[in-house]
Computed example of a mutant assay.
Amino acid sequence: MSSTPTDDKPCCGAFPPAVLRPAELTAFSRGGGARTVPLVTRAVGAEVFLTGQTLFDGGAGIPLHTHNCPESVTILEGDAVVEIDGTEHRLTRFDTTYVAAGTPHRFRNASATEPMRILWIYASVDATRTLVDTGVTARVDAEHTKPSETRD
């Protein structure tokens, strides 16, 4: 196999390394007892993917939605129920989902009292979320404008 000059180029532009500490970052309200902490975003130089954490109070959940790109979610704390394309699954710490673009899904905290935390990764820096009930589409990073009342 011959090498071409593009084989050695990185997939995206250069950016300074970053260490991100969720406890020191702003949490943004998702409504209904869910708060998001953006991590790898355009603000730190992301050009390919987005990551962050969402924290769910006891009993909290997010509405059924789809994305324009694949998404992976790992449970970091607590227990969750995920609905993927009409089927519910119980998840616990470190269980991970991988959902294709356009697949309806949602997460909710399986506990009425204990917190739940997820790590999300979108396969595009331009990820969008479309709510199934309303059809409203917005960029995922547009949600990072309403600071939460509490720090996590």
Rank of each mutant, 00 (worst) to 15 (best):
E71S: 08
T4I: 11
E71G: 03
D57K: 05
S2Y: 11
E71V: 15
P70N: 14
L119R: 04
A18W: 03
P10V: 11
V132D: 10
Y98I: 07
T134V: 06
A46V: 09
V48G: 06
R93M: 12
R30H: 13
R106C: 13
P38V: 07
L91R: 04
C12Y: 05
E71Y: 01
H65P: 05
E114W: 01
K9Y: 07
F107R: 03
G59V: 10
G78W: 06
T26E: 12
I62N: 06
I118T: 14
S2M: 10
G32N: 15
G45A: 12
R35Y: 09
N109C: 09
C12P: 00
L39C: 10
E71C: 07
T66E: 06
R108N: 07
P147S: 05
K146G: 03
L131K: 03
N109V: 10
P104G: 09
D95L: 02
P5Y: 07
G61K: 02
V140C: 08
A142I: 02
D126K: 03
T26S: 02
V136H: 14
T87N: 11
V40Q: 08
F107C: 07
A101G: 11
R21E: 15
L20W: 06
L64F: 03
R151W: 01
A18I: 01
E77F: 00
